[in-house]
Nucleic acid binder design. Structure first.
Length: 482
DNA sequence: CGGCAAGAATTTATATTCTTGCCGGTGCAATAAT
């Protein structure tokens, strides 16, 4: 495009960050923004997505509001930016003391970068302050949260479009590492993109992560295999579970049966323990973490060598996010999914439990006043949707659709495990990624098919070519020093 | 859903069969009680 813009950008990159070259996607994103197009940038993990809005703000002098899903993430970002001499940064969160908060709100115009959660913007007083000083770029970090969390976990993620309107429609930059075209569409729709706006997409493929799935006959066998794997592959490593209890249990088992230092990580840990575990892991004081999906976002450890899934996640987006934490240093790494027939029941139950039942929706639509007295967490969602003035009929439709979508996504996840075609190609196809890969060494490995019909799940037939696979054990030997 | 463990019940005098219960993730903000 414009040569001049590119020059300005490179100068800024050198001046503010000390780099000579942009990473994949950064320059394209910046040019799109400078041309006044709201932009959804889907860039693989580790490409430095935050540099995009930081450099944009430095060059244009504009004020930025960054929507971020986690307080810890905001705190890390603020710290990181201050370290990089970007001092006019603040995170507005519930962890601030009354004094800090008052001071910040009274001096808000001093800050060029403001971090906030979707929830805190519901606070009228805080929102008015932000609105008054004026926002010229609205950044939505980890934008897949809109789709992943908005409909049934953090409904305030569905209010971001409204927030944008109330802020007088500033330019938007949405950032994520994983989004299928469908998810990307939903993100741009929620954020009121128009036809001029841009979606920048780079391949989700991570060539240095070998993909493996193994099917085992029993939990015992799975545990033995796990012990074997973590004792063979040189870490650091990460094991994902769908259950907090199992994560604890296996962490204990591995501490006993191997020489590794293992800790578990999930939402039952208090903040202190979470911090402690994460930092010990980052500083190589721990070899291995047994975690639920609570672990990962914002964890910047470059040398994770393997990610093992003890349980399957609910969809391939989550799977790609989770395995993407391996090999950020570009070195050969591996993702192994261990599967036992029936494992998907956990996900299926989680799925069902995350959505309000038809009878609850119908009942409370008629008796909304009763909801005010219910403290139970699971009714918070219904409260939030009723507060958005959505009719019972629309809600029923909405959740039925949500359930169908999540079911479909789970079926694809299971199909990925059982598919005997190239795993990498499978993922690329799922994301409708145009990159064509050549199946070869260190690509993937699979085991034999299981009868999915036995699970009561219907599947679409996939056309597939038979591919020659290398010997898994030989590969393991070659890849990893024992 | 479905598999498994703990406890109850049945008789098989101490082991077996039957029944019941349980599993299952992600966080924000703001408030209340020590």
């Amino acid at each position: 495009m414009s040569k001049e813009l590119s020059e300005i950008l490179h100068e800024g990159l050198k001046k503010y960050f000390g780099f000579d070259e942009f990473k994949e996607g950064q320059e394209e994103t910046l040019i799109s923004l400078l041309n006044r197009h709201s932009t959804l940038a889907i860039l693989p993990t580790g490409t430095g997505k935050s540099l995009c809005y930081q450099l944009f703000a430095k060059i244009t002098g504009r004020r930025v509001l960054v929507i971020s899903p986690l307080i810890s993430l905001m705190q890390d970002q603020v710290e990181q930016m201050k370290y990089n001499k970007l001092t006019n940064v603040v995170a507005l969160t519930s962890s601030l003391s009354r004094e800090e908060r008052n001071y910040i709100l009274h001096n808000l115009e001093k800050y060029q970068f403001i971090f906030a959660s979707p929830e805190i913007l519901k606070n009228e007083y805080i929102f008015q302050k932000i609105k008054t000083i004026g926002i010229e770029l609205l950044v939505v970090d980890e934008a897949h949260c809109i789709v992943e969390w908005g409909p049934d976990f953090r409904p305030d993620y569905l209010l971001l479009g409204e927030i944008r309107e109330k802020l007088k429609n500033p330019l938007v930059l949405a950032l994520t590492a994983t989004a299928t075209p469908k998810v990307a569409n939903e993100i741009t729709r929620e954020l009121n993109f128009n036809s001029e706006d841009k979606v920048i997409r780079y391949s989700v493929d991570r060539p240095n992560i070998m993909l493996a799935t193994e099917t085992l006959d029993s939990e015992k066998e799975k545990n033995n295999r796990l012990i074997e794997l973590v004792s063979t592959i040189k870490g650091p490593g990460l094991i994902y579970f769908s259950s907090k209890k199992k994560a604890d249990e296996i962490a204990e088992l591995l501490n006993k049966k191997t020489r590794l230092k293992v800790a578990s990580y999930h939402a039952d840990l208090n903040l202190e323990d979470r911090y402690s575990v994460q930092h010990q892991f980052i500083n190589n004081k721990l070899d291995l973490i047994c975690a639920t999906s609570a672990f990962g976002m914002g964890v910047n450890k470059k040398d994770i060598r393997y990610v093992i899934h003890y349980h399957l996640p609910g969809d391939l987006e989550s799977y790609v996010q989770e395995i993407g934490r391996a090999g950020r240093d570009g070195k050969q790494s591996i993702a192994i999914l261990l599967y036992c027939l029936g494992d998907e029941n956990i996900q299926y139950q989680i799925l069902k439990g995350s959505l309000p039942t038809v009878s609850d929706i119908k009942y409370y639509a008629e008796h909304k006043e009763l909801l005010h007295n219910i403290k139970n967490e699971e009714f918070e969602l219904l409260k939030a949707f009723f507060a958005m003035n959505i009719s019972a009929d629309d809600l029923l439709k909405f959740f039925a659709e949500r359930k169908r979508d999540k079911n479909q996504a789970l079926i694809k996840m299971i199909d990925y495990i059982n598919s005997d075609k190239c795993k990498r190609q499978y993922i690329l196809d799922y994301f409708q990624d145009l990159k064509k890969i050549k199946h070869g060494e260190n690509c993937c490995t699979y085991n034999k098919n299981y009868n999915l019909k036995q699970l009561g799940l219907k599947l679409q037939e996939q056309t597939k070519e038979k591919i020659e696979f290398l010997d898994y054990k030989e590969l393991m030997k070659k890849l990893f020093a024992i």
